[in-house]
Design a protein around this nucleic acid. Structure first.
Lengths: 199, 199
DNA sequence: GAGCAATGTATGCGGTGCAAACATGAGAGA
DNA sequence: TCTCTCATGTTTGCACCGCATACATTGCTC
């Protein structure tokens, strides 16, 4: 496979995926064009269409890889978080993923694309389930559905606000500190603190 | 101004902005091209460049309008929220804004653009300050910096997850219910519930 | 009324996604 | 082993894009 000079590439599908990821890292999602992918794979401009019906399909395939890698990063931060602090570590990893691979993160979440792509739903379901399991363990008394949604949203929002320059992301430390502080603050803020200030 | 048939348009700058917003609503951000804007404004393809140095500048101008309108929507949901429930109402309004104007919301937050654009920073600072004031009022005992960051992130994340199809957004009611439940759940979830299950 | 600067136009370049027609060659069946 | 098929690449072409450059028009100032 992948014989130099042969008419057939051998594994163009995978080569496209690899090229797409490289281009994404180098030039952002704007640089991710099918033509650029084809050039990098050393193939004619329209060859990728044999494997991906359109640009969106290729982008979705890249995004699906991103979801899987995000899951790996989160698991690496802590295999089975059981306390709020350990949950914070996972939150930091999530935000870091977004900041370390901004273009990838945008492709995963900020692209108006078909959300019914099979690859995508499977991969995001995995993340969603992962968050739910953590939340169930850390807050056994809470409504797992509502709270895991909230936790994912909180972390996801932190990632985007940093990514968009709405929050200072100049160093990993300042980001990690802010994420931890935010998680701690919102978990500590009970409505009762407002209703009965003395409580 | 704006005489039909006259060489000079009269107020092309504003016309471009209006056209851009229309195109955004009709075709999403993909349909927002300077050429399309020019066509809609009834002007040559490159005329908009007299008023906007490049595409990003026009998009940023549109986004700045979006920020202002978001602020109006939030204020309309509740002028001065003072309880968690009233805060929830604002959260619902934020998510609804995103779902009602998905392309606009994406332009505001999901576009890899220069975050130092003066219009944008001013407008987002307004939102940030608005959230901080609310949080200060609702949770006087909390760290306002950390908690307002967390609240904005939570709501922002909810908006994106719905927008991306990660959460069911089929009807306004189901969305509103989920947003309220998530806000309530995360505010109720105190770390102590995990540390001392009996408390 | 002359001239200037602001505003709009015409043209052209290199890039894009994608459809349609064509070329190649690996592998199955004879 | 020979042939035929068809998955996989290529070529060509179209409409669109952002944007740079050179040019035309005209409202305003003096």
């Amino acid at each position: 496979m992948s014989q130099t000079g042969s008419y057939h590439h051998g594994d163009l599908r995978a080569a496209c995926l690899r090229a797409a990821r490289e281009l994404l890292e180098e030039d952002g999602s704007a640089g991710l064009s099918l033509r650029a992918v084809a050039r990098r794979a050393g193939v004619s401009a329209t060859a990728p269409y044999r494997h991906y019906p359109d640009r969106d399909a290729l982008v979705s395939a890249v995004a699906a890889e991103g979801y899987r890698e995000l899951a790996v990063c989160l698991a690496a931060a802590h295999p089975s978080p059981a306390t709020p602090d350990e949950l914070s570590a996972v939150a930091v990893a999530y935000v870091r993923f977004a900041l370390d691979r901004p273009a990838m993160f945008r492709v995963m979440f900020a692209e108006p694309c078909d959300p019914t792509s099979e690859d995508r739903v499977a991969a995001t379901a995995a993340i969603s389930g992962y968050v739910r399991d953590i939340v169930r363990g850390v807050f056994p008394d809470a409504d797992p559905e509502a709270l895991s949604t909230a936790v994912w949203a909180l972390v996801h929002g932190l990632a985007f606000l940093h990514l968009d320059g709405k929050l200072d992301a100049s160093t990993p430390e300042v980001v990690a500190d802010r994420v931890r502080a935010a998680v701690r603050a919102i978990l500590a803020a009970s409505p009762s603190a407002a209703a009965r200030p003395g409580g």
